[in-house]
Design a protein around this nucleic acid. Structure first.
Length: 331
DNA sequence: AAAGAGGAGATCG
DNA sequence: CGATCTCCTCTTT
């Protein structure tokens, strides 16, 4: 517990990519069937085994890519055009990581010897992304960011989440009946004993969460500067401060994060509040996860949406289309 | 077949 | 008690 931030501030950083969020849910059929680990087509195979240290490799690569790219830009930027790969296309973001924070970081004026600084920028960008990821996970799972506060159910949720984000073998049982406090008190060795396969990986991820919580606390108490990512947290409470979330609020939340959920729900006309559910099953699963309703499906979700007709919250657009709805009162 | 409209009873916080 | 959730029938796309 000496310096929990180490894992965030050092060169090893978080490998989580929000984009995988959806993938996780893709696999988390609400039925009783075991998790279908069938197709592991993503580039995360390396993580499957939970090789120590390897789980971060994705991010490391990312960082390197980004860094070199930044350097390139700063060196010779005759073509400020488009960066090589992984640029976010028009509106349908692919599994697009870190990069959406590019806008700020890499503007035109990266000159000369400011590479160090830009590296720092990249790092803090990344920390920001990590916090965002955690924030998103919290919203989705309806748990607090600080593991210390988790009850046994929260712990199981987190485990399930992490396991499937990183294609880890299922180890939930090994951690049954443990609270977040218990978990936090456990050493890496303890983790490995409970789960020889992925205990170390889980421990590392928990460490990241602990670090993030630690940072959050430190920032909220002390100086309001640090990494420049605290706003993310305050932004986080905006929606989860109140009572149980309403379906329409939840849909709004998803719509506000096209980066994460653009492939399952998106605006057709944001001004008019018209949106389309692109993947009904997926959105239903998200909703079910949020409300702890494993049996949720689109049939039932859509029934709930239809209840809004009478209440004047959501309606069908003038030209009715399948899976397209409209907020009566756009923001 | 999947989506849409609603009725109606059950549930949960 | 309100906001769904659940189940269901019938219609539309």
């Amino acid at each position: 517990m000496s310096n929990p931030v180490g894992s965030l501030s050092g060169d090893t950083v978080y490998g989580s990519r929000i984009g995988m969020t959806e993938d996780f849910l893709e696999r988390s059929r609400s039925s009783a069937e075991p998790w279908d680990m069938g197709d592991t087509k993503l580039s995360v195979e390396t993580l499957e085994r939970g090789v120590p240290g390897l789980y971060l490799s994705c991010f490391d690569m990312l960082l390197t890519e980004d860094a070199t790219w930044l350097v390139k830009v700063s060196e010779a930027s005759p073509t400020p055009s488009v960066p090589p790969t992984r640029m976010e296309p028009q509106e349908e973001p692919e599994q697009c990581p870190v990069i959406d924070s590019q806008e700020q970081g890499l503007s035109p004026g990266l000159e000369g010897q400011e590479e160090e600084q830009s590296l720092e920028q990249v790092q803090s960008m990344v920390v920001g992304e990590v916090l965002k990821d955690i924030e998103t996970a919290c919203k989705l799972l309806n748990i607090t960011p600080d593991p210390i506060e988790w009850n046994t159910g929260n712990v199981q949720k987190w485990l399930l989440w992490t396991e499937h984000l990183y294609r880890l073998p299922h180890a939930g049982k090994a951690f049954q009946d443990l609270t977040g406090k218990d978990l936090c008190a456990m050493s890496e060795e303890d983790f490995r004993q409970r789960s020889p396969q992925c205990g170390d990986t889980l421990h590392a991820h928990l460490d990241i969460w602990k670090s993030a919580a630690w940072m959050k606390e430190r920032c909220s108490v002390g100086d309001p500067k640090t990494t420049g990512s605290e706003e993310l947290w305050s932004e986080a409470d905006s929606s989860c401060s109140g009572q149980p979330i309403h379906l329409w609020q939840f849909l709004r939340e998803l719509l506000l994060k096209p980066h994460n959920y653009g492939r399952c729900i998106r605006w057709l006309n944001k001004e008019k509040g018209i949106f389309k559910i692109e993947d009904s099953a997926h959105v239903a699963r998200l909703w079910g996860l949020r409300k702890n309703r494993p049996a949720m499906n689109y049939d039932k979700l859509s029934r709930s949406i239809r209840q809004y007709y009478k209440k004047g919250i959501i309606r069908k657009p003038d030209v009715s289309q399948r899976l397209v709805y409209q907020f009566v009162h756009p923001v």
